[in-house]
Simulated assay, not measured.
Amino acid sequence: MDSAILHFISPPIPYFVDCGYAYYGVGDSHIERDCIRVFDLIVVRKGVLPIGENGQSWEIQEGEGFILLPNGHHYGSAPCTTDTEIIWIHFQTYGSWKLCLDMNECMGNQMELIEEHKRLAYLNHADVCSIFLPKHMKLSSKAMEVLETFFQQEQEPQSLRNWKRQASFQLFLQHLDRDLASPTNDTAIQLADRIELFIRQNYATEITNSVLQKKLNYHPNYLAKAMLKVYGMTPMTYLQYYRLEQSKRLLLQTPWSIARIAEEVGFHHVSHYSSFFSKKEGLSPSGFRRKFAKQR
């Protein structure tokens, strides 16, 4: 199913707020609302729901889901022509998100969205990743099974129920994210994940395209293509990015010298590290430390 894609950066992972059922008889329409400030995931269990948002209209069929935006104008685009039953789930995020036309647009804007995310979510050095959710989706049987667990927990005590629903919601998002990938994308995702894991575990050592080729048994061009598709950057660019993020962690959490931090994260020359850091962050490593580290 062709659909726009909601691109989220995490952590924090989009979090569950509330859920429930709604029923529409023949002639009933979805309620009209403006800027409800939460994402509204609607899943049709029975019937067909005509829905509109910001001047566009869709018909959500049985077994399909649709995500309404927190800042949109929502309404029934037409009365229901058959008895219809839906599940609704409200969720939200403190991080960055963007509605994109397709995966190419998601990848093209990924680094810009990550940088915005760090400002919004107050994350200066955390490892972040992308979550992709289709706006309009056909739900797999596994995703539907997870969805039903939200209501099987109704008899649990409130505190325990909320914990379980949050866990179920994250599992549900994982299914949506993975179901979005085509077989070609899934292969790229698996390979990109292997590259990312190797870099994360070995970033302080000497890593080159030749090293990656030897360890992963793929030509560097193929490795770069997979990383560009999934992370929006080549393995070598990701390596520099990851080293930079780890150096921020050390700047904030240790009293080590700039030279030692540069060496610890894999930069051979402190001058190269300082220049690279300043270019990417707009201030020097020592300036970053003065701005963000607490007084010791």
Rank of each mutant, 00 (worst) to 15 (best):
S130L: 05
K135G: 10
S286H: 06
Y203K: 05
G72A: 15
E281L: 14
I207Q: 06
K98Q: 15
A4C: 06
S57A: 14
L41F: 04
F169C: 12
Y21P: 04
W97V: 12
L101V: 11
G20M: 12
E154Q: 13
P11E: 02
L176N: 03
D28Y: 06
R194V: 09
R178C: 11
M103A: 08
S182V: 09
F172K: 04
D179P: 12
D28T: 01
V43C: 05
L173I: 06
L252R: 00
T187P: 00
R290C: 11
Y218P: 00
F277E: 02
V128H: 04
I199K: 02
A192N: 07
G63V: 06
L180R: 10
H7F: 05
Q110G: 07
F267K: 02
S182K: 07
I67E: 01
T237Y: 09
W256Y: 12
L147T: 00
S141R: 07
W58C: 02
L113Y: 00
F39Y: 15
F91Q: 09
L239Q: 14
H175Y: 15
Q155T: 08
P157I: 11
E196H: 14
N162R: 12
E263R: 13
Y222W: 06
I258C: 07
F276V: 09
Q110L: 15
N104H: 04
R37M: 02
S275K: 10
T208I: 01
D28F: 05
Y222D: 05
P220L: 00
W256I: 01
L180P: 05
Y241T: 03
T93Y: 02
I60S: 08
N209W: 05
D127M: 04
Q110Y: 14
Q110S: 14
P134Y: 04
L49C: 05
Y203V: 06
G27M: 07
V43I: 15
H136Q: 03
K142W: 07
I258S: 06
S168P: 03
V265Q: 01
R296A: 14
F292E: 01
A167Q: 09
G287V: 07
N221W: 02
I5R: 00
Q56N: 07
I67V: 15
V17D: 15
L120Y: 03
Y242H: 10
G108Q: 07
L212E: 01
E53D: 08
T81Q: 12
G52Y: 08
Y94G: 08
S257C: 08
R290D: 06
I31V: 13
K294M: 11
K46Y: 05
Y203W: 12
A259C: 01
D34N: 14
F267L: 08
Q174P: 00
